[in-house]
Design a protein around this nucleic acid. Structure first.
Lengths: 254, 254
DNA sequence: CTTTACATTGACGCTACGTCAAGGTGTATT
DNA sequence: AATACACCTTGACGTAGCGTCAATGTAAAG
């Protein structure tokens, strides 16, 4: 079957301008040009357009797509398998977003509490995924060795953005903790918020959360002088205060 | 909790430039400006940014988003419920795309046949969804009355793009049919492709496909002179030929 | 033979930022 | 007290991926 611009476009659900643009940037050339100068596309071009749309769906730039498709060792079937993987990932992320919107509804109705942090769950993964698509593994290999900070990051298997966020959240835990300490009430709202932020912070490195482990770690903050020093640096007694707050948060009895 | 540009940005997974841009276009203004000119954002702004990102995720333009959020009768919770609906729709579309990629793999491995039409299943829905998000119901109300063609379209509950595609596919059925007729073999590849295209064409208007109904319709093409005239116009005998092809396609015995 | 629908090549416009540049600020460390 | 360093500010220009005319030629149908 042969197609003119418009026919190909409406079949693929894109505009004819898009088809012409793809010709212009050399990403999808017509099979041949008719005697009157019309672009004519065949089976091969249809398949290539499909591939382009798959990559585009995953947020990849057209220039990048061109390079991939024009690579001499491009393997169409392998690419399709990768598309499948990525789409399944995207499905996971969508599920998170849906969970997010549902939690937000419950939050607005006052049924649950929700940290500012949590309000953006599901959005962020996408950025990471896009970066992955853009640069693949390389970025981590390349920049991962630069500094000790960053090699730490590599050790924890985080992308730069995750790492930044991890650091930021850690700081927020501290800020909230000091504010909560001033109230003096480990069962109070601020203290409980601190405990919750701390749980979120932990989730970056823990593969699964349990109340017992959380409470255990809190106790360790008091028992291990290195940790105690970290939390007590500005304000002595906060490590103990944090432990108390977490014990209440996790429902642990002393 | 109060945030500077960078803190808000990294929490939400966007760039600080994005936050500044949103200030510039008056879609998200800071709660206040610090004495040194820094933008400071609070709880309310965090929530608004979340809303913005939900709408953006659904492909809406920022200008449109601004109008919605600034509307005096904007209902946040209602919007969230709509987000949920849209996200579930998106999930459906993603499933189709995944099915598509899986089918394409099978096709490349020669296990199934696949029409050019089918190669773009799952992409198109998205365009429609975006149009819906952009113009809502209005577009159909507004343009739907213009011509008889279009009111037909409304009757069939198709968007303009679907309708175009429906027409195009109908033409393809005819083209392929005439080509197949020349081979003279209703069991041949071309004739069977025609039958398959015809099935796809039907799927636009039928809510569920069955081989029996398909075969029944094919017989009607021969029995009802109005239909026979339509198919036989260019080439007498094609209606009958199509019926034979479909009978073979559906495994119907005469 | 005319209408209608589709094709062509420019060329300019738009959105949603990315990316410098040139400078001011806040805080920690020495 | 000085310095480093990471953050902030306002321009201002650049880019991708098309949308949208404009002016003109062509194919198919009636």
């Amino acid at each position: 079957m042969e197609y003119t611009v418009q026919k190909l476009a409406s079949m693929a659900g894109v505009s004819s301008r898009t088809i012409r643009y793809y010709d212009e940037i050399e990403i999808l050339k017509p099979a041949r040009i008719s005697s009157s100068g019309y672009r004519i596309y065949g089976e091969k071009e249809v398949d290539k357009l499909q591939q382009i749309l798959f990559y585009r769906e995953l947020g990849m730039g057209l220039e990048q797509i061109r390079q991939i498709l024009n690579a001499p060792d491009f393997d169409g079937v392998k690419a399709l398998h990768e598309h499948r993987e990525q789409l399944l990932e995207k499905q996971e992320q969508l599920k998170k977003l849906i969970t997010n919107v549902e939690k937000t509804i419950a939050h607005k109705e006052g049924r649950i509490t929700m940290s500012d942090q949590e309000k953006f769950e599901g959005f962020k993964r996408k950025k990471i995924e896009e970066n992955e698509a853009k640069y693949g593994e390389e970025i981590r290999e390349k920049y991962g060795e630069e500094t000790v900070e960053k090699s730490n990051q590599k050790f924890m298997n985080m992308t730069e953005e995750e790492y930044n966020e991890f650091q930021r959240l850690g700081q927020e835990v501290l800020d909230t903790l000091y504010a909560a300490y001033k109230t003096g009430d480990p069962a109070g709202e601020l203290a409980q918020k601190t405990a919750d932020l701390h749980r979120q912070w932990l989730s970056f490195t823990w593969n699964q959360y349990s109340k017992e482990a959380h409470a255990g770690l809190a106790q360790m903050y008091v028992d291990d002088p290195r940790f105690t020093a970290y939390y007590d640096e500005k304000q002595p007694g906060t490590a103990e205060f944090l432990r108390d707050a977490i014990f209440i948060y996790t429902g642990q009895k002393k």
